[in-house]
Each structure stands twice: as C-alpha cells, then as structure tokens.
C-alpha cells in the first residue's frame, strides 16, 4: 500500500470525521438530557447549509469582500439562525410532549423533519444549490515532492479541523466551567431534582437544543464551503451518519461524540478508498447496527443500569 494514499485517506477521514463529530454533539447532548433522539437534527444541519449559502450571497450583494469578515460574519449569522431553528424544534415537537408517552416526541420530530425538508424544497426549490469556491489553495506534504507522491491538504480542510477542534473546546469549556454548564449537567443527572433546586430545566433543555443546533451550523458552514453543493435532502444521510458517530463514541458523552466522529470518518474513508466507494454508506450503517448489538455504550459511554 502506498503510504501517500494512506496518508491522503487519513486526511480525508479526519476532515469528514470532524464534521460528523460536530453534528454528533447535538445528538449526544439532547440524548443525554432528555434521553431521546432528536430526529430533526439532520434537517437542522441541512438548514444551516442553506443559510450559509444565502448569507454568503448576501454579503457579496451588499458588497463586503474582505474574506475574514465574510467568513466570520456568515458563520455567526448561520449559527444564530440555525440555533433559532433548533430552539423552535424543541418548542414545537418536544416541549408540549414532555409528559406524553415515549413514542410521541419521536414521531413529532419525524413530522418536523418532513416539514423542514419540504419547507426548504418549496421555498428554495428542489434543485441542487451551491456556493462559489472560497479560500482556494493546498498544502502539500512533503512540500517539495517532485512526482505525484504527496499528501494534499486544502486550506479549507485544515480550516475544518481547526474550527471543529476550537468549537468543541469552547463547548467543553462551557459545559465544564460555567454556571450554565453546571445546570446542564445537573439536569442531565436528575431533572426533577435539578428543578427542585431552582434550575429552570425547560430553559436548560432549550439551551441544549440551541447549542446542538449551533454546532450543527458550524458543521453545515464548513461542509458547504468545502463541497460547494447541497440540496434539501442532505440532512437525512448526514443525520444517520452523525448519529452513528454519537453511538460509536458512546451516546451522552461529549468527547465521545468527537471521537466517534473521527473514527467513523476514518473508517468510512478507508473503506471508500480501499474497498468500495459505492458501499461506504452501507458500511457506515452496518457499523451502527453492529455497535448497537455488541457495544451499545460505545467507546466512552457508561453502560445503562436499569432503574427498577
């Protein structure tokens, strides 16, 4: 096996995995706090891709061309509006059903995901959309390679890894070291008790949805810039993949989500590179099923002890 091909697959896998990890954070946090899968999370990601393209075009129309300003502005706006969508999803599909039977929130979230998909299809059209290329250029490793034996890392790819790491670090800091984070962890441990101690658990749950959506927005922003094209259906596939990442890492665990994302990204990228690229999605889903069967608590999760 050629070492450069191997290296290239590593890079691709890492980049892919970082985005999976960012989205997986949303699943893992929501699961941690209300014990439910947010089925609309993939669509939140899809919304953020559209918002990225729209804000990018908006900045161009307005006439702001300074690249750092544009990128930062688009990222912040996308995160804000996506977070608002995340908040609305919780408000509509989850909060009214907090004391309903177990299936109801799941079904309403599936309803929401159908609504979001078709809302975008109707308002933005069913066709493929795209963004113009930004930040072109590559690093080569080793830099002075003469033949084709080098590993290529685009600027955007390195940006993805860096931004993903930074935002994960910020999120971890928020959860570990702020009052808000403490309230989140308390709610996760015991919602009723946290409520009795004066934590507004409804607000905390909303916050968790908002944070998850914001992280998905970071992923949406990065992936959109990197791949350039998207449609209203991308959320579905990305959603399952990111959920797989969350399960791999151990659902409920924040570092697990990132780890799971990277592992899934690498595994998928190696499978596509060395086995068969047609079946990489099948491979990812099979991995999900196998993990749920043999190690449902993932790499870093703790096995559930049933309360009787």
């Amino acid at each position: 096996m050629d070492i450069t091909i191997f290296g290239q697959q590593c890079v691709n896998g890492l980049v892919l995995g970082s985005t999976y990890g960012l989205i997986a954070v949303g699943y893992t946090m929501v699961y941690g706090i209300i014990g439910m899968i947010n089925f609309a999370h993939g669509e939140i990601y899809m919304i953020s891709a559209y918002l990225t393209a729209i804000f990018l075009a908006l900045f161009t129309t307005v006439g702001i061309h300074s690249l750092p300003v544009v990128l930062l502005g688009v990222l912040v706006l996308t995160m804000l509006f996506t977070a608002l969508y995340g908040w609305s999803v919780e408000r509509i599909a989850y909060r009214p059903l907090r004391h309903s039977n177990r299936l109801a929130p799941l079904i309403s979230a599936i309803g929401i995901s159908l609504i979001l998909q078709n809302y975008i299809r109707i308002s933005q059209g069913a066709r493929n959309q795209g963004v113009p290329p930004v930040l072109e250029g590559v690093f080569r490793l080793p830099p002075d390679s003469l033949d084709h034996r080098f590993v290529q890392i685009t600027y955007l790819q390195s940006l993805i890894v860096v931004v993903a790491l930074v935002s994960m670090a910020i999120l971890t800091w928020i959860i570990q070291h702020t009052a808000l984070g403490r309230a989140c962890r308390a709610t996760q441990q015991d919602r009723i008790m946290a409520n009795l101690l004066g934590v507004n658990t409804d607000r905390i749950i909303s916050t968790v949805f908002v944070m998850g959506a914001a992280m998905a927005a970071v992923a949406g922003f990065l992936v959109t810039l990197n791949y350039g094209s998207f449609d209203f259906y991308i959320g579905f596939l990305m959603g399952i993949k990111a959920f797989t990442a969350a399960v791999l890492g151990g659902i409920g665990s924040l570092p697990g989500a990132m780890l799971g994302g990277v592992v899934l990204g690498l595994a998928e990228s190696f499978f596509a590179g060395f086995v068969n690229s047609d079946y990489k999605d099948v491979f990812a889903f099979s991995l999900l099923i196998l993990f749920l069967i043999f190690r449902p608590s993932g790499f870093l999760g703790v096995p559930e002890v049933e309360k009787v």
């Binding site: 899968i37 299936l103 099948v282 999900l288 099923i289």
Partner: peptide, 27 residues
C-alpha cells in the same frame, strides 16, 4: 439483537436498515 436495547435505538437501526436495503438495491 436490537430489541433488547432502549426503544429509541430500534427506530434509528430500522432507519439505517431501510437505507442499507435501498442502497444495495441501487448499487
């Protein structure tokens, strides 16, 4: 194997299984 797990996992596993079948049929 899946039915011994927490209920929500079934939803996502069946979702994945549906996609696997469709992708295999397609590819």
């Amino acid at each position: 194997p899946v039915l011994r797990l927490h209920g929500d996992y079934l939803a996502i596993v069946t979702l994945g299984f549906g996609e696997i079948i469709r992708l295999i049929l397609n590819n």
